[in-house]
Design a protein around this nucleic acid. Structure first.
Lengths: 371, 371
DNA sequence: CCGACACCTGAATCGTCAT
DNA sequence: CATGACGATTCAGGTGTCG
């Protein structure tokens, strides 16, 4: 596995290797300006308090590892500024960096990146298609994570494969929000006991898009928080060289085993990101938020037998019934079910129109600029 | 337009008014702990270099106003920490704050919020359904902005209308990514010359979701960067009071004109799907006192695995366990907790019914004859 | 081999009130 | 302020078993 390559007289790089130890020390031991891309998935500094149970009473397996514990925001900032400084030194002048985080840490990381001189090119939102819900109903479902993409400094060049990403996105410019599922099933690595090998393994589809879009074949990609080696695996598939740094022996072992199995140009890997979209679901509430319908307005049924009033949260009140457009329609008709979209009408310019017309308008907008 | 309301002897608030001047001075002139929600859309500190042209050589009307210019990150940080401190002072203990930004400023703002003691509840991605493309093809389409929602501090309470947002989203939990169009068409305010009145006018749909989800009717909402008054307009529609602060006379004028035209939704429409948590508590013992259940009767669990006997004091005996309906349910299931109301059933006319039905009967009576 | 269904799981800052 | 009782709360998708 260990190979080295000599770059025109410079110190040899430990390519396609996982280095042991602290990431700052390991980075500082490598030659300056020798790496094309850094992908970093640092600890998020989640500050979890007690246990959390699902409504079915099963317990959520929390991220409570020692490596995610910091005494304070200040301690986390010191840690962050340290490794970012080492990363700055290591990048080639035209290199770039990606960092992923959540609201717990990403604001501090982003500010530290700007302070370290990195020039932010985009922030990218990874919208999870299957996130864990908010079981207590106390907040919004935390359904995304944020990636920051930055060049080495203001005015620095960087690699951006515009056409490749456009092609990945069915011919339209790739946007800053990416819908991808979390890492589950057979892709999720297990340890000897059958438990997950790492609490926060990232999906290969995410790294595929990052590396395809912002590196070239033969580039050197460094991951200072290598974990189970998703960055290395995708780099190998795509014909890039990688350097991993990981201090936990258990993660290194799993990563070594994983990487040994990876073959370059795995066709399956290229299919991971391709996803077909069904007709998008439009919540009725959007018609109110967008001002297409006003709270307090009156709908009437297609057969003109019933009326109902729209409320600000997208529910209806009709007779004694309140609920969704479907529920109230079904209740009034005494039917087991009802498609509220085609059941309810409203007067516009004196003429009755189906509320489904508004849904079609929204879908048309979405179709114009998909994903 | 100018109204005031006196809060139990405290200084009167200038409700439903646009205050002139610097937002920090204006906030500091208001009484401490007097505001339920702050919505802030501060300058983004866009660092645009030179003019931007579309492929057809038409020029993009960029944000180049003086109020968006800062000499350095440090200057922007000072400005940010200043107004956040004033905002902290102004919020009621159970108040909350929303701040919107882009990658240019949101990381610095988020870090400053954490440093000021705010406790982040969610970051929310406003995914624009119709963003401006990246004309040069050098980066990803910047298709989103980020909102940060935070309570006044760790452990502080906050308003969250879970059921209303769930209703808005067709019955599934609202997520942290919101798809909404940018402000265009008739909603986009124009000045006398027909140009857009403000470079970054936010859509009303965005504020609708924020205010519906995290305030109650009658709450006081303050916007220290009022602009053309989207926050005020939606607050007025939704029956909330607002206070705006805006130092540019041109924006104030546009906002005044806009607000005069806004009508409040009718009272019934503002009723929103309520949470069960708000319903009155019914002691299980009342079912026995009222003769709905008789001591000695046998309950069985929803899953039919366990039985328990009702005692005269409203406790149960099941297996070796005795105690409340919740305690016995949890003990029998070996679960950390159990909602006895939905767990236990009883036979009536040969059919199993949930004991929660009896609670609902009592609650319905209480609603008819309050006190 | 297929469909139905039960079961499991995911970077989570996930109560409130009375005593 | 600590403690304990009450009781509210989940979505998408994969895996594996059974008939």
């Amino acid at each position: 596995m260990t190979k080295t390559k000599t770059k025109k007289g410079a110190t040899a790089l430990p390519l396609n290797t996982i280095l042991n130890g602290d990431c700052v020390d390991a980075m500082n031991a490598l030659p300056a300006e020798s790496v094309d891309l850094i992908f970093a998935d640092p600890p998020y500094n989640l500050q979890l308090r007690g246990d959390l149970h699902r409504p079915d009473n099963s317990q959520v397996d929390a991220v409570d590892d020692a490596w995610d514990q910091f005494a304070s925001f200040d301690a986390y900032d010191l840690f962050t500024r340290d490794w970012l400084k080492a990363a700055q030194r290591l990048l080639k002048p035209n290199g770039a960096i990606w960092v992923i985080g959540s609201y717990h840490n990403v604001f501090r990381v982003g500010a530290a990146m700007q302070d370290a001189g990195f020039w932010i090119l985009n922030d990218v939102v990874w919208r999870k298609s299957n996130p864990m819900p908010n079981f207590r109903g106390k907040r919004l479902t935390n359904a995304h994570e944020t990636l920051i993409w930055a060049s080495k400094g203001e005015g620095a060049k960087y690699t951006f494969n515009y056409e490749a990403l456009k092609a990945l996105n069915e011919g339209v410019q790739m946007r800053s929000d990416w819908v991808l599922p979390i890492c589950t099933g057979h892709e999720r690595l297990k340890d000897d006991k059958g438990d997950k090998a790492h609490p926060t393994q990232k999906p290969e589809s995410l790294l595929h898009r990052v590396l395809l879009g912002t590196t070239n074949p033969g580039d050197v990609v460094l991951d200072p928080f290598f974990g189970t080696g998703t960055t290395g695996a995708v780099a190998k598939m795509l014909g890039r060289d990688f350097i991993g740094i990981e201090r936990e022996v258990a993660y290194r072992k799993v990563a070594e085993k994983r990487l040994a199995k990876v073959r370059k140009f795995d066709r399956e890997a290229l299919q991971v990101t391709a996803s077909k979209r069904a007709e998008p679901r439009v919540p009725f509430g959007q018609l109110i938020e967008r001002g297409m319908l006003r709270p307090g307005e009156e709908l009437f049924s297609m057969n003109k037998r019933f009326k109902a009033k729209v409320r600000a949260d997208g529910t209806l009140v009709g007779g004694d019934h309140r609920g969704s457009i479907h529920q109230v329609g079904a209740a009034l008709e005494g039917a087991p079910s009802c498609n509220g979209w085609t059941y309810w009408c409203i007067k516009r310019d004196g003429k009755p129109i189906s509320i489904d017309v508004f849904r079609q308008q929204i879908r048309a907008e979405m179709a114009e600029r998909p994903n």
